[in-house]
Design a protein around this nucleic acid. Sequence first.
DNA 1: GCATCATTCAACCTCTGGGTTGAATATCAA
DNA 2: TTGATATTCAACCCAGAGGTTGAATGATGC
Lengths: 125, 125
Amino acid sequence: MRTPATPNHLDQTLLALADPTRRAILQRLSAGEARVTELAQPFALSLNAVSKHIRVLERAHLVHRRREGREHLLSFTPKPMDDVARWMDAQRANWSARLQALDDLLQEEDRALASAPPPKKGRTR
Amino acid sequence: MRTPATPNHLDQTLLALADPTRRAILQRLSAGEARVTELAQPFALSLNAVSKHIRVLERAHLVHRRREGREHLLSFTPKPMDDVARWMDAQRANWSARLQALDDLLQEEDRALASAPPPKKGRTR
DNA sequence: GCATCATTCAACCTCTGGGTTGAATATCAA
DNA sequence: TTGATATTCAACCCAGAGGTTGAATGATGC
């Protein structure tokens, strides 16, 4: 379903987060910088696989890579997650606004019914 | 990178959200129930494609389907998004806790340096 | 009954995601 | 230099995502 050929930031961020290995990596990184090998250590995965996961996180700008000699130091950069949080908040605001509107409608109906006795059948006139 | 063969709820939710078409559908649904054809209308996509997107959202429990005659009425169910929000909050709490710890460390160091003049070379004792 | 409308099912295509292994590159340490 | 270490590159595999088209299913309206 190639939607547009231009995946936006939200797409990339959410996609990057949609994998338990990558979420675990982020969790580890939120405790501080780590090297690729360190990050790979807890997983039953080849180093290469983890390297790829890191690339996905980088693409989403969720991590930043700092080279120091032969070691690559990865660190967590939270901005994209803030963006996701903002989108979700907006979405939820939308949703609760709609619920509120429904509620208002029902209340108004109740008031109308209370002021005029229910015409069970036939018109009032 | 088949991590486990058991994609958990977060995986499915985030994956479902990682597509602009599906996010648009959710946005539309947060304004109220809609039929499949209505949902498909804004997109330059086959009805079938949209039907598939809806299935993905269903799999993630982000929408609920109610059949009424030949029409399928879709509605937004926000719980999975709440779960994502909770995960992200936890993640951010983690992160800011770490920053706070770093800050504390620096402050303590500063205090230490202020009380004892800096021994530029050689041990104190 | 029959045409129509709403939706899915089935088959297929292509692209990408996640994984592997093996070789290449670059740095460090001796 | 030489060998070990840290990491990526390249090629490949397979499953699944996203899309298409065409047929099947199931209500509805006459």
